[in-house]
C-alpha cells in the first residue's frame, strides 16, 4: 500500500499522520500538526518507537507511546497518546478491524 494520511483534532490541536504499512506493520510514520509537545524533539522518538509495530493492537500503540512519554518526560497540553493513535486509526480505516 502507499502512504495514507489521517487527521485527528485533539483538544491541544490538530494531529496529522502520514503512515506507510507493510503487511500489518508500520514501515514509516510522520507526525505533524499545530499541537504543543515538550520537549519538542521528543516527537521523533514517538515516531521511532512506532516504526516496525503491528497495527493489530490499538492497545500496543497506546502503551508504546505512553512509554515514550514516560521515558522522555513529555508534556503535551490537551493532547494525549490516544490522540496520536486516533490519527493513525483515521489514516488506516480500511485496515482496522477487531479490537480497533
Amino acid at each position: 500500500m502507499g502512504t495514507r494520511t489521517g487527521l485527528h483534532k485533539s483538544r491541544g490541536g490538530l494531529i496529522r499522520c502520514e503512515v506507510t504499512l507493510e503487511d500489518d506493520r508500520i514501515m514509516d510514520i510522520i507526525l505533524s500538526g499545530d499541537f504543543f509537545l515538550y520537549p519538542e524533539d521528543a516527537l521523533l522518538h514517538i515516531a521511532d518507537a512506532l516504526r516496525g509495530l503491528s497495527i493489530s493492537s490499538r492497545e500496543l500503540l497506546v502503551t508504546t507511546i505512553h512509554d515514550v512519554y514516560s521515558k522522555h518526560e513529555i508534556i503535551s497540553p490537551g493532547c494525549e497518546p490516544i490522540d496520536f493513535v486516533s490519527a493513525i486509526a483515521n489514516a488506516l480505516k480500511e485496515e482496522m478491524e477487531g479490537d480497533w
Partner: peptide, 29 residues
C-alpha cells in the same frame, strides 16, 4: 509551528512573495 510542514499547510505557489520560516515552538501558523 515547530511540528508543521510547509508543503502540507501552505499553497506554496501562492506565497512566493512571503518569507516563510519555522519557529522552535509548537502551535499553528
Amino acid at each position: 509551528g515547530f511540528f508543521q510542514r510547509a508543503s502540507v499547510e501552505l499553497n506554496l505557489d501562492r506565497c512566493k512573495d512571503y518569507t516563510i520560516v519555522r519557529r522552535i515552538s509548537g502551535g499553528g501558523i
